[in-house]
Write a protein that binds this DNA or RNA. Structure first.
Length: 553
RNA sequence: GCCGGAGUAGCUCAGCUGGUUAGAGCGUCGGAAUCAUAAUCCGUAGGUCGGGGGUUCAAGUCCCUCCUCCGGUACCA
């Protein structure tokens, strides 16, 4: 790392608990974050991985009304399901929390009051549409009416789908509620505003110091700066959310995008409460030597690179993000992933049918780091069969077969080394250096490619040294070869651990080694001792047949 | 409409501040090997870098314009 960070705090964008999470979420923010933290842990760094469900906002309240159930029922359902799916996919959160907890409510209200007490917030009264029938103010996109520009009759209060005009609800002709269809009335409402415009200069200065941010993030923000940041209302007329902790405003709640990012902080608090160290979270959030990294999809850039940092600046106590490595989107079979039913892959379904490591590997090797990418089931099949099975799995298997068949299931000694032996170790070490740089620079696709390329060379080493001949002609030579191949197997357990956590644990077990050998330091050295007894090998990646893929596509 | 991103081999994707014959994996075709989940390794072929114009000794890379796709557009998150 370019700076002497003592601690690393990693977040994945909170999952909105209004539906099942799909593979796009994994590709955008969950998987890169998990790979990153697993790598940092291998290096022995002090890292926390924070995520959770975002459970407030208009959309959840509206879903509850439509389905005639409570918001709580909705969030419970999706929080539980999504959390399980994430863990099934190997996400190694230190905590997966949610924003409906008491800790979060208190933390958000404290945050709000901190700004309120410093007189940073102001109130403003605006005219809004109010439904007498529903007894509620209507959010912009829950008002439907006729577009004043093109006459389209199904325009929503924020924009016209037909002509693309940006609208406000008051401009619509014949406005009506999207839920009940009744005609709303104009009513005034008073809200708190966050003075985002005042922080533009500080934000630009701050981002100016970031020379390793991805261009898409920098340019996107530059666009907003150029336009000029405007203050934002941070309270809403809803029933569902964190109540505004100010007298006279207790019927209102905090804007979901105000409280959601605070969720990263409250989840960290909750984690340390569980650890019986209630102040422990401060060591991370109040510490200028913490490296804070937000992983997210491109739809979230403004909130993590502009709005939340401004909130933190206003508050003053917290560390700001070191990086916001935003990914683009992953689509399915060439068309948008989340658009309509039948064209979506839920994580909960995928993990039931497919080896989670295969899912992780496929997504990681085609991660939308620079642009939108496509997920194909046929691609997953090819990656599983041709790379995971044929290259990695096969190398491990052919090595173990030799150890079992000719060396009684133990690690043979390493005798006199030849050039080809020292070369493969040099190759391993240069590969490790490259992969380490890949991970530190958020280049996960490169990391996967570079990792698998070492295994390709390991297979070449196996071919070139021909242990099946050596075992007959020169047993000592064969001992050395298989010793080295087993050392490489151990190295691969470490190297692939960020991407393939389940399989690498199996490899470690096959080697009869413990977690203490799962460290990046030990990946470059040949640490296995001759005579050490191995466990029985197992097939790590079963071949996926065409018929299975046809069922999934 | 406006802001940002993208369009590169049959397919999926790399190509930082412009610099010799544009790269990788898969797929294709040929070869070597036979220890291994018939799994490996080597080699071959494949592209007027979305269209057009410009700057430059030199452009996939910079500028202009057009087409197509994606995200945002401040009350969806």
């Amino acid at each position: 790392m370019e700076k002497n960070y003592k601690k690393i705090l990693v977040t994945s964008a909170l999952t909105y608990a209004n539906g099942y999470t799909h593979l796009g979420h994994i590709a955008g923010s969950l998987l890169p974050a998990d790979i990153y933290v697993r790598f940092q842990r291998l290096l022995g760094r002090d890292v926390l991985y924070i995520c959770g469900s975002d459970e407030h906002g208009t959309a959840i309240e509206m879903s509850a009304i439509k389905e005639n159930i409570t918001p709580k029922e909705i969030i419970d359902k999706y929080h539980k399901s999504n959390k399980k799916a994430y863990y099934d996919l190997g996400m190694s959160f230190d905590i997966y929390s949610r924003t409906s907890t008491d800790v979060h409510r208190a933390t958000s209200q404290d945050f709000f009051m901190n700004l309120y007490n410093k007189d940073l917030l102001y109130t403003k009264t605006e005219k809004q549409l109010y439904s007498e029938k529903e007894k509620r103010f209507l959010a912009d996109r829950f008002v439907i009416g006729t577009c004043p520009v093109c006459g389209f009759e199904e325009a929503t209060g924020d924009e016209c789908e037909n002509c693309g005009s940006s609208l406000t609800p008051l401009e619509l002709k014949n406005p009506r509620s999207k839920i009940t269809g009744d005609t709303p009335v104009v009513k005034e409402s008073n809200h708190f505003y966050f003075p985002l415009s005042k922080y533009q200069q500080s934000l630009e200065t701050w981002q100016g110091t970031k020379n390793n941010w991805k261009p898409n993030v920098i340019n996107y923000c530059a666009g907003w700066f150029k336009k000029g940041l405007q203050d934002r209302a941070i309270t809403r007329d809803l029933d569902w959310g964190v109540p505004v902790p100010v007298e006279g405003y207790d019927e209102k709640v905090l804007y979901v995008w105000f409280d959601a990012p605070i969720g990263y902080i409250s989840a960290t608090k909750e984690l340390f409460i569980e650890r019986n160290n209630p102040d422990g979270w401060k060591d991370y959030w109040y510490n200028g030597e913490t490296k804070l990294v937000h992983f997210l999809g491109k739809d979230n850039i403004i909130f993590h690179a502009i709005f939340f940092p401004a909130m933190l600046m206003a508050h003053g106590d917290f560390v700001l993000a070191d990086n916001v490595p935003a990914n683009e989107f992953m689509n399915l079979e060439g068309s948008k992933l989340s658009k309509r039913r039948g064209n979506i892959i839920y994580v909960k379904d995928a993990v039931e049918k497919i080896n989670p490591d295969t899912i992780r590997y496929t997504i990681a090797s085609n991660m939308p780091e620079n642009r939108d990418t496509d997920f194909y089931w046929s691609d997953l099949q090819a990656k599983n069969n041709n790379e995971l099975g044929a290259i990695l799995g096969n190398f491990i298997n052919r090595t173990f077969v030799f150890a079992n068949k000719y060396f009684d299931g133990t690690i043979p000694p390493q005798n006199e080394l030849q050039d080809i032996d020292t070369n493969i170790k040099l190759r391993l070490n240069s590969g490790l250096e490259k992969i380490e740089a890949d991970y530190e620079n958020y280049k996960f696709k490169d990391a996967v490619t570079d990792s698998m390329n070492i295994v390709r060379d390991a297979n070449k080493y196996f071919n070139d040294t021909e242990p099946w001949k050596a075992v007959k002609e020169n047993k000592e030579r064969c001992e050395t070869i298989i010793n080295i191949c087993l050392q490489l197997v151990h190295s691969f357990a470490v190297i692939f651990h960020p991407v393939l956590p389940f399989s690498t644990e199996k490899i470690l077990h096959m080697l009869n080694k413990g977690k203490e050998d799962l460290s990046w330091d030990k990946a470059g050295d040949f640490v296995l001792k001759p005579g050490h007894r191995l466990n029985q090998p197992e097939i790590l990646f079963n071949k996926i047949e065409d018929s299975e893929i046809e069922k999934l596509s």
